[in-house]
Write a protein that binds this DNA or RNA. Structure first.
Lengths: 97, 97
DNA sequence: GACATAGTTATCATTTGTGATAACATTTGA
DNA sequence: TCAAATGTTATCACAAATGATAACTATGTC
């Protein structure tokens, strides 16, 4: 691969508009990566966590799906985390530092 | 006052059901306290942050209101924080430790 | 008291997240 | 390769968050 992807990313991010877009999207990707991680660390399948939350696996898939355009409710994330044995913590960090 | 309130809280929390209820509600209170804090630290009124977010002060009041039963969307909190000059960070912490 | 500023509450319309179902795709293990 | 398990996608109904408006309370200032 010779790091073509990394090069592309580096180049793309040097474009201010792309960089702005990336900063906006990155948190959403990051969140979903975390969701999947805590579920797997808990040893649960989508169907199992769905059952705990009394819903269906398709809804869990949508929640975890990176391509999803939805912005979930806080309570949805909280309950999902709790089902996986975690608690959610929110912090606010001053921008540009 | 002789700390009557503290005593009451301590006693109330020794009741398992009350303690459970408290753990469930505390995060919601905490979030709203944080929201109000970052807005004030930014030197903004509800009306000013509402204008930045292109909405109305009544909606900001509802968002910040501790008594509100709503669970806001992640994007709502994100945008509010951004308007106040902060970014939101979410972490998941293993329960019971 | 009159006034301005800041925040609250109630209400209704609109938007959007969530639940459920079903069909499909993907991965894994025998 | 076949079957089972796991995850994805599309769709529709329903619930709930958000937007807007207006009237209200609270507070401080003149």
């Amino acid at each position: 691969m010779r790091s073509t992807l990394k090069d592309f990313k580096k180049k793309a991010l040097s474009d201010p508009e792309v960089a702005e877009e990336y900063r906006n999207l990155a948190p959403a990707y990051e969140l979903r990566r975390q969701l999947i991680k805590i579920r797997k660390d808990a040893g649960l399948t989508q169907e199992q966590i769905a059952e705990i939350l009394q819903t269906k696996k398709s809804n869990i898939s949508r929640l975890e799906n990176v391509n999803s355009t939805i912005s979930p409710k806080l309570s949805t994330i909280e309950e999902y985390a709790k089902a996986a044995g975690y608690r959610m913590q929110i912090r606010f960090i001053p921008q540009s530092q």
